[in-house]
């Protein structure tokens, strides 16, 4: 009979296909959006890391003598030992005489730190809660009601309320942005757990006696990685925006810390005369967030095509 066609696996056809599985990440890295967004982000990371070496001065240094200078003005700086140095403030100075360029460059550190920290913490907490919710049925109801409640409070308002109680500081701000993000991650992880649980291969694993925790880590959790990376990038982008908004409103990070939001907050009062205090940090901010979002889009298209249909 004609059993031969289906019988032994054709080694040649296997060889051709054998790299397919692992190369998903390589495909993602070849996506033009990921490349463009990733490159801009790498530049931003380099700026953050090399901030002291990019012709900056102490970003918190107040110089009453050279307040409110337009970009490109040459200012004379008096050093601690009494000498004077001439220096061009390419982005001008603010109303306390601080160098806007230095502040913007150092601000990169704050924004990236907030973005990365918020995304990482929210994803970590959300994944744990989501797994519990998806797997421990009797806890699910309680957890999801709490998450619904959290989601019902508009995120930025919740963050504002929390900052107002705990006093502003970098840690508080990060925490305040994390809390409203957690339910989003929980929902994502929970929905994946609930879907994957129904997959025949999970049922198959149950029927060969696989213990629950192995089931979780080997068969269920890996399915969440790609969507979580995608979600994480979007959370990071949003977190940077929220931090900027909070600082801009004067209820974020303490004003002496150079964050983009703080620079812009400082520039508000004299905006009509010196718009540069707002525009320079804004350009950096928009570029960074745009880069993360573009990268997120690219990652989603390649890693998580099912989700890309949704948004």
């Amino acid at each position: 009979m004609t059993v031969a066609t289906e019988d032994l696996v054709d080694s040649a056809s296997i060889a051709a296909a054998s790299t397919k599985r692992k190369s998903l990440w390589l495909v993602a890295l070849r996506n033009p959006f990921v490349i463009i967004g990733g490159s801009i982000l790498l530049v931003m990371l380099a700026i953050a890391a090399l901030a002291p070496f990019l012709g900056t001065i102490d970003p918190t240094r107040i110089d009453p003598a050279s307040r409110n200078k337009k970009p490109g003005t040459e200012i004379t700086m008096r050093l601690d030992d009494g000498k004077t140095v001439k220096r061009v403030a390419i982005m001008g100075t603010d109303s306390l005489g601080r160098d806007v360029y230095s502040r913007v460059i150092y601000g990169t550190r704050v924004s990236l730190a907030v973005g990365v920290a918020v995304a990482a913490i929210a994803v970590a907490i959300g994944t744990v809660i989501g797994l519990i919710s998806g797997y421990v049925r009797w806890l699910d109801g309680i957890i999801m009601r709490i998450m619904d409640g959290l989601m019902a409070i508009p995120g930025i308002l919740l963050a504002i309320a929390m900052v107002s109680i705990w006093r502003a500081g970098l840690i508080t701000v990060i925490f305040a942005i994390v809390v409203p993000d957690v339910p989003r991650v929980v929902r994502l992880v929970r929905s994946i757990v609930l879907t994957v649980r129904e997959e025949p291969y999970v049922e198959g694993a149950i029927s060969v006696g696989t213990p629950t925790w192995v089931l979780m880590f080997r068969h269920i959790l890996p399915n969440t990685i790609a969507p979580l990376i995608v979600q994480g990038t979007f959370l990071a982008a949003a977190a940077i925006l929220v931090e900027a908004a909070l600082s801009f409103l004067g209820i974020g990070i303490p004003p002496e810390i150079p964050s983009w939001g703080n620079i812009m907050a400082e520039g508000r009062t004299l905006f009509r005369v010196f718009p540069h205090n707002i525009f320079y940090p804004a350009i950096f901010l928009a570029f960074t967030v745009l880069a993360i979002n573009i990268m997120g889009d690219g990652l989603r298209d390649t890693l998580d095509p099912k989700m890309s249909k949704k948004v």
Partner: peptide
């Protein structure tokens, strides 16, 4: 569990792709 084993309908979803 060992004593009863099951083969499902959908050959594409019966195996963990990873």
């Amino acid at each position: 569990r060992r004593k009863v084993q099951i083969v499902f309908q959908d050959p594409y979803r019966s195996m963990n792709p990873r």
